[in-house]
């Protein structure tokens, strides 16, 4: 599904070069559930942006579903994002003036999906995240967990192959986090490839595989269930602050 080889990404900050990613090699199977962990500045988000075709690597190759992404024009990358990839963000990024249903409709609006088809798929997507009863609410009338579920509905309404989530539960309390994770895992169980950046070991432990990034490199790779309880410091990770509950 995804093959990364020798991915490198360097940013210039002032006159300093910051090496965000150094020779990342990885491959993800279709339907896999991957957690990206690592301390701040380890390159998790950069890697996620490259996976999501929002950013391009300076070196290395990225094959997505058999296609070499580096060869694609920026318009083709836009189409890849439109059809292959869904994004979920820590801060939800719902458009505040639009209702939940309108937010979910957005990607289809710009993809030129006919109106009736849009309406049908909005209903299905909202039902899939169990928030149909809030369809006409604007984001400021929804709780954090509800907003994130609307965002997931929006990310999946174009039926992508991959869902990229950047700290999807980072702003949620324990119960809301649990519901959001359940929704994501249900979709993963139906074949959606899921890549989650997280600080939360409870999230990572549920993943098929955890990639631990340190200084732009994959320091360790192990099964989620192998994530040691408690002593994250041994992995070079900060002990996560208790999520607000």
């Amino acid at each position: 599904m995804i093959e990364l080889a020798g991915i490198r990404r360097t940013f210039r900050v002032g006159d300093q070069e910051v090496r965000a990613l150094v020779d990342i090699d990885a491959s993800f199977e279709a339907g896999e559930y991957i957690a990206l962990m690592g301390p701040s500045g380890s390159g998790k988000s950069t890697l996620l942006n490259i996976l999501g075709c929002l950013d391009r690597p300076d070196a290395g190759t990225y094959r997505l579903a058999g296609r070499e992404v580096g060869d694609l024009s920026s318009h083709e990358l836009t189409l890849v994002r439109r059809h292959e990839i869904g994004f979920v963000f820590q801060f939800f990024h719902l458009v505040p003036r639009l209702t939940a249903a309108r937010n979910v409709e957005l990607p289809m609006l710009f993809a030129g999906v006919p109106r009736r088809e849009r309406r049908r798929r909005v209903e299905a997507a909202l039902a899939a995240v169990d928030i149909s009863n809030r369809a006409d609410h604007r984001p400021d009338q929804l709780s954090g967990g509800q907003r994130q579920r609307v965002a997931i509905a929006r990310a999946t309404v174009m039926e992508p192959r991959i869902l990229l989530a950047d700290e999807p539960t980072g702003n949620l309390d324990r119960d809301s986090s649990e519901r959001v994770l359940e929704v994501l895992e249900t979709m993963n169980a139906k074949g959606l490839t899921l890549v989650v950046v997280t600080h939360d070991p409870r999230v990572a432990r549920r993943a098929d595989r955890v990639l631990l990034l340190v200084d732009g490199q994959i320091a360790k790779s192990f099964r989620g269930s192998e994530l040691p309880a408690g002593n994250l410091a041994a992995l070079g990770l900060p002990t996560p602050p208790e999520s607000t509950s």
Binding site: G52, T78, R81, R82, H83, H93, V95, L106, F110
Partner: peptide
């Protein structure tokens, strides 16, 4: 600005 970023992430082209 963030809305524009979001739209780009959702697969909205520059021309759009």
């Amino acid at each position: 600005t963030t809305e524009v970023g979001l739209l780009r992430a959702l697969g909205v082209s520059r021309d759009q």
